[in-house]
Structure formats: structure tokens, C-alpha cells
Design a protein around this nucleic acid. Structure first.
Lengths: 141, 141
DNA sequence: CGCTTTTCCATAAGCCGACTATATAACTTG
DNA sequence: CAAGTTATATAGTCGGCTTATGGAAAAGCG
């Protein structure tokens, strides 16, 4: 289906635009990878550095560095893994959870004007798209 | 509508993930801003640097630098504006158009496995979402 | 058990894209 | 034409991400 492949391409192009729009509209300079990391810790619970690196889709050193920044800010804590002395486990703090909530409010507020003209049908398409995107990157088939 | 605001947030989160997935799946290091620039030139025709900077959503110096890179690669050309000697006008070259086409093929090929399990209804939601996203950043209302 | 190999994370060095501030040149206005 | 404004270019800097590498712990194997 060549048409579907084209649709994927268009979707990616639009997501890049929206990502950029969100970054610019909020003015928040916190990198997207940080938000992905916090969101993963929130939904999946404490995780190892290596696991997080692949989940966030950055290199392991990048995640180590990101984690140290977030530790300094008090948004996550790094602790030992009782089952493996090499490993480090990152845990979301209460402040980290608050930071995510704040960011969500900020982005929602900044972007909702752009979505003001959507009708109910548009919203249902969006909802469906969000839910299917949420579950599509577990292993390409 | 608090639910809708939440949906926007989730959409942004998913688009960030997809953007990152696309970057990683293709291995193509060309920055997203370059693709946005080429795509704009393709659909809108030759444009001034300043106009492109805001369309691509980067600062003017960033676009100047990006343009010079793309010129070196032969993907765009920079020419004078006959109506304003200060201005520079960027134009997509044939090679530039080819580069976009190639990239689209690459991203479509790299990502389509992830979308293999979608049904017809999913695809129609995606199509609707793409089309509404395409037309949402002309001025927040 | 001891030794090798593998795994996990941290550190080092460097690249590249983006930003702010500033300079230069050209258009516009009074 | 002088003064102010606008369009782009340049300089300088910062931050995130990458590859390459190091060191320590676990796992595999004789």
C-alpha cells in the first residue's frame, strides 16, 4: 500500500512540526528527552539506566548525563540495584511528578488555542490516533 | 474542556516519541529543520530567509546557517530579490526535490513495519489527524 | 574455584544545531 | 538627505547527543 506509506511520512512531518511548535509555544527549554524519561518513570516505575536509555531512545552516556542533571534538580533519585551492584536505578521523586504535571499544564495551555477550531469529530480522530501511537513501538513486526 | 487539553498533551508526547523513533529508525542525521525547510520550499515555492525562519520556527541566524549548508550540498540556491537588495531568496533545486523524495522513501520504509498491525479504521483516523494537523498552526485563535 | 568474557554504568572528547547579541547594508520616511 | 527601520550575515556561546574508552561487577567455563 503505497498510499499508507505516504501517510506515515506525512504523519512524521506533521509530528515534527507539532513538536517544534510545542517547544516554541511553551518557551520551555527542557529537552524532550527529559520529559520522555520522567514520563516513563511515572508510568513504568523505577528503572535501570540502560533500560531507560533504550526506552528514551538515546545513547547510554546521554542518559547518564541527563539523569545527573535531573538528580541535581531533585526530579529523580539514583539508587543501587540490590540484585546487581553494577546497575543504578532511577526513581521519580515527588518533585519530578510535580514537574511533569506542571509541564503538561503549560503545554496544554500554550497549545490549546491552536486547537480551538476543531469539531467533535476531529477530537475523536485525535483521540484514536493518540491511543494507537501509544502502542506502536514495541518491536517492528 | 479539561479532557481535550489533556489529549493535546498526550498528542505532543506521542509526537515527540514518533519524531525520535523516525530519527533513530532511519539513522539519517539530517536535522528536522532542514526537512521542514525543504518541504516548505517545495510546497510554497521560493521564499525569503526571514519568512522561512518563522515558517521553520527557528531563529533567523539559524536559518541563515542552515541555508548555507544546504547550498553547499546543492539542495537549494540563494539568489537576490529583485524588489529588495537586502533580501535573499531561497529556491529548491532539482537535487533538493530529489533529496526530499529519497528521504520520504527512507522514512516510509523504515517506519512502515511499526504500522503493520493497523486496521483500516486506524488508518482512517491517522489520515484525518494528519490532515487536521496540517492546517492548525496558522495563528492561534 | 580462578580466569576470561560479557554486561553495566561513568568519563572523555568532540560535533553540531540552536540561540542571543551585534554588525552591515539597504529600504523607508519625514 | 538624515534618521530610523528592516533584512540578512557574523561572532560567540551553550547544551545535547554521539562514539570511544575505562573500570567494576556478574556470568560462563575449564
Amino acid at each position: 500500500m503505497e498510499k499508507r506509506r505516504q501517510l506515515i511520512v506525512d504523519l512524521v512531518a506533521q509530528t515534527q512540526r507539532l513538536t517544534r511548535l510545542a517547544a516554541q509555544a511553551t518557551g520551555n527549554s527542557t529537552p524532550a528527552s527529559a520529559w520522555r524519561l520522567l514520563a516513563i518513570l511515572e508510568t513504568e516505575g523505577p528503572q535501570r539506566v540502560g533500560t531507560l536509555a533504550s526506552a528514551v531512545r538515546v545513547s547510554q552516556p546521554a542518559l547518564t548525563q541527563l539523569a545527573s542533571h535531573l538528580c541535581e534538580q531533585g526530579l529523580v533519585t539514583k539508587g543501587p540495584d540490590p540484585t546487581d551492584a553494577r546497575a543504578a536505578i532511577l526513581t521519580l521523586t515527588g518533585e519530578g511528578a510535580t514537574a511533569i504535571a506542571d509541564w503538561r499544564a503549560e503545554i496544554g495551555g500554550a497549545l490549546s488555542p491552536y486547537f480551538a477550531s476543531l469539531n467533535d469529530e476531529d477530537w475523536s480522530h485525535l483521540a484514536a490516533t493518540v491511543s494507537l501511537l501509544s502502542s506502536l513501538d514495541r518491536e517492528p513486526s
